[in-house]
Design a protein around this nucleic acid. Structure first.
Lengths: 210, 210
DNA sequence: CCTACCGATCGGTAGG
DNA sequence: CCTACCGATCGGTAGG
């Protein structure tokens, strides 16, 4: 009926190398079953090959984990990097940073999950690189908060570290609940989160009812 | 030198059954290496016994996971339950709920980590129970937000679901960064988070500089 | 709680 | 990319 070798009329998805396919399926399996819970034979089977055949394309299971985690780290880094020199006021920069951060999570839910859960299983070298990346991201958000205070856009009494922790909680925890087909786009989530964080939950004092 | 059978002068820690010791070490190993990455032989070795001897005390590896995850769920549930009927205004209830939630996370970092990472590996029955618990907790926070709006304590235009998501992000993500010996107690973290959430980051409009 | 063991499965390799 | 295989390790059990 459907001959897999027949030319398809639907537009072919962008050509992916076998290596990219392996990374893609590995991200899904690692995110669903965990790094140690997903076997190389599972991975091979999903790609229609034998377990040993994987090693014609990749050097080993851990190399796969390293590449998935580091690619995720690079995506986060690339999304936030140029915001360091953005001329807008800190509240707008915060909104933009959260939007980009959430877009990376939402657009790469599987590798983001692997990134957040499985980085502890990396070998010392890759482990250190991921830790460094994490520190950079925290420093970025702390810097943003501190600049906002200096600009007079944010309250002067903010605890910079805890404020950055709160922002990071919001954008990172999204990997647990966000579903791409859902009600809100990543940018809409960011707008609502940023609005809540900037304005607070408390109702403003009533006019004329003192 | 130190005879392990000699009576100790330092106060003995509360008597723990062998089963409790097994749960404790299993929580640590599961949190550090993941459920599938930690072997029953590792666990036995840390307790000074042979692999097979574990099965005199427990029925299997998955039973261990189930009990760790469900005990964590019960702790969260117990901490939040009676707040449903607390008579204080919603902003104080929010602060209290966050303090209790963070206290459970901070006081059980290892089992909380297992709870957040490994619940997907449960068999269907236990999986369903954990999902139900998760729904209950989300409903609790959504209810709290909705009540705050009704009371006039929170802004009338809040997105209840996203507000609850933001609160849950803050208290749950804490398992990734909180260290018991650190600068702030769980209650102090809750106070700062609640202060930020309620009041917002934005500096209040300047008096006399319109 | 130990010894000794079970079948299954693991990541990975040799040779084609 | 396959066949056939390696040693290691897995969760768990029998019998004491």
């Amino acid at each position: 009926m459907t001959d897999p070798t027949a030319p398809s009329l639907t537009p072919t998805p962008p050509a992916r190398t076998r290596r990219e396919q392996i990374h893609e399926v590995a991200s899904r399996l690692f995110s669903q079953r965990g790094y140690h819970g997903a076997s190389m034979r599972d991975l091979a089977a999903e790609l229609g090959m034998q377990g040993g055949s994987l090693y014609a394309h990749i050097s080993g299971k851990e190399a796969l984990l390293i590449e998935i985690v580091e690619q995720a780290a690079r995506q986060f880094e690339g999304a936030l990097l140029d915001l360091g020199t953005d001329p807008r006021p800190a509240d707008e920069r915060l909104r933009e940073a959260m939007a980009r951060h959430l877009t990376v999570v939402a657009g790469n839910l599987e590798s983001a999950t692997v990134f957040f859960h499985e980085w502890k299983h990396l070998s010392p070298d890759a482990y250190a690189r991921v830790t460094a990346w994490r520190d950079t991201t925290e420093a970025f958000y702390r810097g943003l908060v501190a600049q906002g205070v200096q600009e007079g856009v944010f309250r002067a009494d903010l605890d910079v570290k805890m404020t950055a922790n709160l922002i990071l909680s919001a954008v990172n925890w999204s990997y647990t609940w966000y579903h791409p087909g859902g009600r809100l786009s990543p940018r809409e989530v960011a707008d609502r989160y940023a609005g809540l964080l900037l304005g607070g939950l408390r109702a403003p004092p009533q006019e004329g009812t003192p």
